[in-house]
Design a protein around this nucleic acid. Structure first.
Length: 305
DNA sequence: GCATGTCAAGTTGTG
DNA sequence: CACAACTTGACATGC
């Protein structure tokens, strides 16, 4: 079982200014164009390599790559960037590390959407997949591109059928091989149980998100939902789960119910299965290290299976 | 340097 | 009914 965290390494960011989401507002992009986007992207990629190497040397087996490495990527092709040769070399070096990389494209991605929303989604998802291609990663669910269905459009069944149709008809083979879906945290959206028909129709694996399940369990226990999601992953690929505790419950009673906590407060139950767990806690790698010390490292006499 | 107003995209439901 | 929350606050400006 590997642990990971998302996008930012607070230690490297604070001590060395190493981070991967340099960007710009639209006006600046209009003024400075692709040249400046390329500069920022190269810096982001070089810093991503440093973060991934830090993970490797600290026993962190997986990591979520930010979706902001390439600013305004919807407006150009990666190969058009003036610094593309250096960028590609850096991405290749990242891909040669042992860290299991994944991404979580933003909530604007609506594969069951229509018109420009769907077009934007296709471009964004394909770009994520292309970055993994450039890293030299084999197209598989080992390196997942994880999204939500993210909208019910008043009819969950019809929405899933549209999602499946778009998945089958509009995505590249590499993207299809990487795409996974995650259970939602809102009653109007999709539980693990409600995503199963999509899996059955398409083979898309389901990422189990513990926190979302607690917010919107449907009528399934955590164990039922966890085991059902884990069973959707293909042979030979360790399933991935997402974990956070509740900010409202543990840190700030006035926080919104779906806000993530800074730290991990409760042990992560994996029911005896081998899964990788990506922490979505706000204190990033610090919360991972603390969790290890508190719950895993020195004195855990009982292995709960 | 630091404070502050502003910043692409979609959808939902809380406060 | 605005706006926060989702995946990660950070950019741009002016003092």
């Amino acid at each position: 079982m590997n642990f990971g965290y998302a996008c930012i390494n607070l230690t490297l960011q604070q001590e060395f200014g190493i981070y991967t989401n340099r960007g710009m507002i639209q006006r600046t992009f209009r003024e400075k164009g692709i040249q400046y986007a390329s500069e920022l992207a190269l810096k982001n990629c070089r810093d991503l390599l440093q973060i991934v190497r830090w993970n490797e040397s600290h026993g962190v087996g997986c990591f979520r790559v930010s979706s902001d490495v390439f600013p305004w990527a919807s407006e150009y092709r990666l190969t058009e960037l003036p610094d593309f040769p250096e960028i590609r070399a850096t991405l290749e070096a990242i891909g040669r590390t042992s860290v299991r990389l994944s991404t979580h494209p933003g909530p604007f991605n609506k594969l069951a959407g229509e018109g420009p929303t769907l077009a934007n989604t296709l471009k964004d998802l394909e770009t994520h997949s292309e970055v993994f291609d450039l890293m030299g990663l084999e197209p598989s669910h080992r390196n997942k591109i994880n999204i939500h269905v993210g909208g019910a459009y008043g009819d969950k069944g019809e929405t899933l059928r549209r999602f499946a149709r778009n998945y089958e008809g509009l995505l590249s083979q590499h993207l299809k091989s990487r795409l996974v879906v995650e259970n939602d945290d809102k009653p109007g959206l999709f539980t693990v149980a409600e995503l199963l028909p999509l899996h059955e129709a398409t083979g898309i694996p389901i990422t189990f998100d513990y926190f979302h399940h607690r917010l919107h369990p449907g009528d399934w226990s955590e164990r039922e939902a966890f085991e059902a999601a884990v069973a959707t992953w293909p042979e030979g690929i360790t399933p991935v789960c997402h974990f956070s505790d509740s900010r409202r419950e543990h840190e700030d009673p006035s926080a919104k119910r779906e806000a993530h906590s800074d730290w991990v407060y409760t042990p992560i139950q994996t029911y005896g299965y081998d899964v990788d767990v990506v922490l979505e806690t706000k204190r990033k790698e610090l919360s991972l290290m603390k969790y290890r010390e508190q719950f895993l490292m020195p004195h855990s006499p009982i292995e709960i299976g």
